[in-house]
Nucleic acid binder design. Structure first.
Length: 287
DNA sequence: CGGCTTTGACCAGCGC
DNA sequence: GCGCTGGTCAAAGCCG
């Protein structure tokens, strides 16, 4: 949080750095690194596949929108690591963005204006006259044959749209928990059809849903009001899912680390500590 | 039968 | 103001 700089849209982050995208008191964090990510992932029971690197690309869209939405309050901060991680454009090993963000009391996502459906959930669309406010989002670019990567939550598809300049459609999913505001978009990269871009938006207001495919869901039960958004495709600690459904870039290595494992047993949501968001998933060293 | 996907229509935001 | 595009709704159909 000491160094600030701009992050170019489209930048592929490759160096061993951790970046934090900060916004006021809330924080959106993107962690981009190689060794660091591998390290973290492995703590959660996942290892990067050395031969099939997943890379995180800072999406133009994402960055631009974030910049726009945060209206200048946005600042990208390098939280650790050495020099700016912009560069090379070469393939980096993986992505492990983690987000902590604004509270779950984020602005309502959409009023009933169009659909006539009661807006009990906040989201990205504001009422008339109000500027649309997006919830924190983060995207993963993962090499995978499977479009819809399992992440431990259950999703209901509510739309699909053709994407401009892309032969692949974009699918829209919403968490099946009626009280949950989280959404995600899944699309295949037009540049590299082997990669799937998954963009999460919002924060789960529930700690677990049970693993839909017969596996075990282990998520941050401690995220109560500051829930960590749905995690990356890598975030399947202790899961038991068909291997074919896994991102091609990761392999399960070992059971949950203590920190991760505990969430599977937590039943009472706890209020987050200041560093609760990341604290549950990101080693202090990352912050 | 309930839950989910599909898909066309609709709406809002944005650029020109 | 208009057109384009992204995002969402909701009816219909599918499937276990």
């Amino acid at each position: 949080m000491d160094d600030k700089s701009n992050l170019d849209p489209g930048t592929e982050l490759t160096s061993d750095s951790s970046w934090t995208l900060g916004h006021d008191s809330d924080t959106v964090n993107y962690f981009f690194s190689n060794d660091r990510e591998s390290s973290i992932l492995s703590e959660f029971g996942w290892n990067l596949h050395p031969d099939e690197p997943t890379r995180l690309k800072v999406l133009d869209q994402l960055v631009e929108e974030e910049r726009s939405d945060l209206a200048g309050n946005l600042e990208i901060q390098r939280s650790s690591g050495a020099g700016p991680a912009r560069s090379s454009g070469s393939v980096s090993t993986s992505n492990y963005p983690s987000v902590s963000s604004s509270s779950s009391e984020d602005p309502p996502e959409k009023s009933t204006d169009s659909g006539g459906k009661p807006p009990e959930i906040p989201s990205t669309v504001k009422k008339k006259g109000q500027k649309r406010i997006r919830q924190p989002r983060f995207a993963f670019v993962t090499k995978s044959e499977v479009d819809h990567l399992e992440d431990g939550y259950r999703w209901r598809k509510y739309g699909q749209k053709a994407v401009k300049n892309s032969p692949f459609p974009r699918s829209y999913y919403r968490c099946t928990n009626s009280k949950c505001t989280v959404k995600k978009r899944v699309e295949r990269s037009s540049e590299d059809p082997t990669t799937v871009i998954t963009t999460y938006e919002g924060q789960h207001c529930h700690h677990t849903v049970g693993f839909p495919r017969g596996g075990i869901i282990c998520h941050q039960a401690t995220f109560a009001s500051h829930m960590t958004p749905p995690m990356s495709p890598f975030y399947y600690p202790g899961m038991h899912m068909p291997r074919e459904n896994l991102p091609s870039t990761v392999v399960q290595s070992h059971p949950l680390p203590v920190e991760a494992r505990e969430c599977s047993t937590v039943s009472t949501p706890q209020l987050p500590t200041d560093d609760g968001l990341l604290g549950d998933i990101v080693p202090p060293g990352m912050r």
